[in-house]
Design a protein around this nucleic acid. Structure first.
Lengths: 118, 118
DNA sequence: TGCGGTGTAACGCGCGGAGTGACAGGCCGC
DNA sequence: GCGGCCTGTCACTCCGCGCGTTACACCGCA
């Protein structure tokens, strides 16, 4: 592990969802990274990439985690979406500013279901 | 065909999120597909693919839509995630069944923030 | 001194979103 | 008729990225 100073792919402000695995899930289950990767049916390296924030939690991975530790896949995907959209919003500020901002009538918003409860 | 492990209490199997654009957003704004694509700064073909369910609503696209019609990006990404995870759950039933199901103590779930509303 | 766990790096594959160009139609107005 | 603008789809390409694979270096312990 000491063979190299890790470059940290992106100096981040927001925490990756993968940190939850290392910080809470694996310690709570008292499992090693290798053990967890075997039981999740993914490679040890892939789990490392997820925990390091170098790879995203995909829909498939979220389902594996849901089955694995009971945390619903929606939670993982939501965390991942928030993380990605936060980064995208930063690098798209100029593009977004050029897009006209319309407003939908409230009746349409109700039809779409924007007011999603739950 | 193997029996499905209970078809999920939530009938989250909904049409593609892109259908909302054609059915509600564009008509409400009284815009053509071509006009909308220009204002969204994407190609007309790409918008077609999204509306046809042949392409997903990415984080970038969700931000464009948020700016464009006021519907928050979280809504689009959530719809997209639900759609993808629903399809993934179908084709991963055998893999998921092979993964051991552990349970995290509620104290850990609180630390993770699984119960965060909104 | 093995053995297992850990953390990275490098390579290649395959999927999929996005742009580009092209094509066939449908309407409408001059 | 003839453009002009729209629609829907196809094929091709590029490129990012999740993932598996292999390999390497380090640590701790029996």
């Amino acid at each position: 592990m000491k063979n190299r100073p890790i470059p940290a792919p992106h100096p981040e402000v927001w925490p990756h969802p993968g940190t939850l695995l290392r910080e809470y899930v694996l310690p709570a289950l008292n499992l090693s990274v290798s053990q967890a990767s075997v039981e999740l049916r993914i490679t040890r390296q892939s789990l490392h990439r997820i925990m390091a924030g170098q790879a995203a939690i995909t829909a498939e991975t979220s389902l594996r985690l849901e089955r694995f530790c009971g945390v619903p896949s929606r939670f993982w995907l939501r965390r991942q979406s928030d993380y990605e959209s936060g980064r995208a919003r930063d690098r798209m500020s100029d593009v977004l500013a050029a897009i006209p901002a319309y407003a939908l009538p409230k009746t349409v918003l109700d039809q779409i279901g924007t007011t999603d409860a739950e």
